[in-house]
Design a protein around this nucleic acid. Structure first.
Lengths: 242, 242
DNA sequence: TCTAGTATCGAACCAGGTTCGATAATCCGT
DNA sequence: ACGGATTATCGAACCTGGTTCGATACTAGA
């Protein structure tokens, strides 16, 4: 059905001839739109109009919306990677891993539209892959099997991904509003839970106070530390462990 | 801009008068479509035509596509919940937790379209919330603070969510095809990695063999066990731990 | 100058979500 | 049994947004 596609979309990114665009300009504008109003706000038409061009031109630089999103992600991942590489290497590999994961998490907090897309790029050379390598490299210093290393990196990234998934759904559109929004949002949950039968929902009643007004970052850190604790134990008992 | 919406969409689900539809029929057909061809294949028009009705009728039962998806998720979650509750309670709470998470994961493997949507329902009574309660209840038997319990459940669910995110993006459309597809898919990754400079990508080269042909379930279990190990340690040293 | 490749553009196509008013079927009070 | 009120059904029409395609420049080299 679909012909093999022979669109450009991966030009050598040479400098623009006419006074017009460039892949960098396109990506920059895309990131702007994403930062301003989130993923659904990035439309080809909107992007074209921001660039002062026609929709057709956008398709010269990217092969479609999906490709655009992927490139935008890779684009900002470059900055994250740079920040990760800036820090000096301390001693403990697990501490390193932790610091990197936190940096990544912070980036996702700033740009919720990164969502869980930020790990889709590991099939080709790019910042996703470099990030993956960077994370995993820390594990080379641990006494583990390759399979265990692979699983460990996946697990650590998984913590970030799931936190990102959480983040991505919380604020319906209350980004622009003040700070009351979040409290209200959480409050609605809490109110619902408190209204439930304590006999049927003992756990919910146990945690509702902790949940109300909880901090996403602490929640993330808790999950991360659980995983890292497990990892430390695994590394401590050597690779012959299951 | 958007008027407050006063559509029905939450009728008491009384029995159909005419020989026609019902919310169950709608949800059933929706789940069929989702199972057959994944989330993007669920269109209002497609659903209506499968039901032998008009698009307008669908909107009598659900308030929109998003609501439809949420209800479909809740629908199948009922089955998962039943399966989880079927098993007898063994002794160890962490083992319980583990078994439940695995059951949930298996459900996601069967229905990748559950994606990370399956935990969106905790703001209202429903199977999502009951699942959450069920998971968390196991933790009541552990010596933890409510905040730690909250964090722990989030962490465990996070492992499932991130695994679901992985699953949801792997097979482009090779669902119907035989079993060669997956090998090929992974093989492409592996080939790319092996072609990279070992000096620049030592980690990737270390794990590429483990990655090639890896099993998603084992990957999930490894991440889960890392988290559960951390949890056991946390519970072992009591609630006054950080 | 001629030609091929590089870019730009926007009209037009198409899929799919959502709205809305017409209409039928049913229920209930009188 | 009758007549409004309620419950449901239906699909044409609207609208947003991704994608295609052919026309048209503009540039560099032969």
């Amino acid at each position: 059905m679909t012909p093999p596609r022979q669109r450009p979309a991966d030009r050598p990114a040479r400098e623009r001839r006419r006074a017009s665009h460039s892949i960098e300009a396109v990506l920059g504008a895309a990131v702007e739109l994403l930062d301003e109003s989130g993923e659904p706000a990035l439309t080809i038409r909107g992007l074209a109009s921001r660039l002062g061009t026609g929709v057709g031109s956008v398709y010269w630089y990217v092969s479609g919306r999906d490709d655009l999103l992927d490139r935008a992600v890779d684009h900002v991942l470059g900055g994250v990677l740079a920040e990760i590489e800036r820090h000096p290497r301390t001693g403990d590999p697990v501490d390193e891993l932790r610091r990197m994961a936190v940096t990544l998490f912070d980036a996702v907090v700033d740009r919720p539209w990164l969502g869980s897309r930020f790990m889709r790029g590991i099939d080709a050379e790019g910042n996703s892959l470099r990030l993956y390598e960077e994370l995993g490299r820390q594990l080379l210093r641990l006494d583990l099997t390759p399979l265990q290393r692979f699983h460990a990196v996946t697990a650590v990234l998984g913590v970030v991904v799931s936190a990102a998934a959480d983040l991505g759904q919380e604020p319906p559109q209350a980004v622009v509003d003040g700070l009351v929004e979040r409290e209200e949002f959480l409050g609605r949950f809490a109110a619902t839970w408190r209204a439930l039968d304590p006999g049927e929902y003992p756990f919910l009643h146990d945690i509702v106070d902790a949940f109300d007004g909880h901090d996403d970052k602490q929640q993330f850190l808790a999950a991360l530390d659980l995983t890292l604790t497990g990892l430390r134990q695994l590394a401590g008992q050597g690779p012959e462990a299951p």
